[in-house]
């Protein structure tokens, strides 16, 4: 029993990492109908950014956090302006390959800047692990879960409550109609990229202390985030969130109860079964029929 609780704890921790990444991906999809395969690399940039700004330059944590997110979001904006905007009229599959190209490019750049060795980032707080029913919970895990909730909640409120957010939703529903009612869809596209890459960077910052950061950490994270977003249903914010947590918990339970070598396989088999039962994801917002 004690073990099961421990598995759940670690599952929820990794799950919330996947969740934040999935939320960023899903959010971008709902405003631009694009899946960004370089999202994982923006997460990596966030983690590497905090290494440089907080650990090496020793700036205070909140400032370092803000600077990193801003810098990465700026990169996201550049990416949108230079690559995606130029190729906007292309088929979705072409855009996907462009983002794949971008992910290789960003990884290459990060390798030159930070080198090939991984970095370690200290925990945000020096508290000891908390013990609940014999299972240990790391404070950083709590941070991650809380941050995931706050991020998803903020984006939710932003879409539901603010005018800009509503305008972005309008663009997602029907670009032409939104344009007719005076919404600048291009600005909304840039904004979506900024928010998406910004949340990616935030995810990277929060996971840096529990794992090691290196230039090639992004690919697998992006992949897991993509899976989570799919399971939840593309375009559904809380669906992506739930998908992330589910993926993390499945992996952890698979590793603990069955076999750690097969943990990814177990998670993927269950995810495929879910997809077969509800082909549009658990909380499908609309049928995603583009590619």
């Amino acid at each position: 029993m004690q073990e099961i609780i421990q598995y759940l704890f670690s599952g929820i921790t990794t799950g919330s990492i996947y969740a934040v990444i999935a939320v960023g991906l899903s959010m971008l999809y709902s405003s631009t109908e694009l899946i960004n395969f370089s999202h994982g690399e923006f997460v990596m940039l966030g983690a590497m950014g905090i290494v440089t700004i907080w650990v090496h330059l020793a700036l205070p944590l909140p400032l370092a956090f803000a600077l990193t997110v801003a810098a990465v979001a700026f990169m996201g904006m550049l990416f949108e302006r230079l690559a995606i905007r130029t190729a906007k009229k292309h088929q979705p599959i072409t855009l996907v390959i462009i983002t794949v190209g971008a992910s290789i490019l960003l990884r290459g750049v990060a390798m030159i800047i930070w080198g090939k060795d991984p970095f370690s980032v200290p925990q945000f707080s020096s508290h000891e692990s908390i013990e609940i029913a014999g299972a240990a919970l790391v404070p950083q895990s709590l941070f991650i879960v809380i941050a995931a909730f706050i991020l998803a909640g903020t984006i939710h409120l932003f879409f539901k409550q603010t005018l800009t957010g509503k305008a972005m939703v309008a663009c997602a529903v029907n670009k032409k109609a939104a344009w007719l009612s005076g919404i600048p869809s291009e600005t909304m596209g840039v904004l979506a990229f900024i928010i998406s890459t910004g949340t990616g960077a935030a995810a990277g910052i929060f996971i840096a202390p529990i794992t090691m950061s290196s230039y090639d950490m992004g690919t697998i994270l992006g992949l897991k985030g993509f899976c989570a977003a799919m399971i939840g249903g593309l375009g559904s914010l809380w669906g992506a969130f739930a998908g992330g947590i589910l993926l993390g918990v499945l992996e952890s339970l698979g590793a603990g109860l069955i076999s750690s070598g097969l943990k990814d396989a177990i998670a993927f088999i269950l995810l495929l079964l879910i997809l077969y039962i509800c082909p549009g994801g658990l909380f499908s917002a609309k049928v995603a029929k583009r590619f």
């Binding site: 421990q6 670690s10 240990a136 994270l221 590793a255 603990g256």
Partner: peptide
């Protein structure tokens, strides 16, 4: 996995 962020499940076992 080479890029796993967490190994607590395995260690608990």
């Amino acid at each position: 996995g080479p890029n796993d962020t967490d190994t607590t499940a395995q260690l608990t076992k």
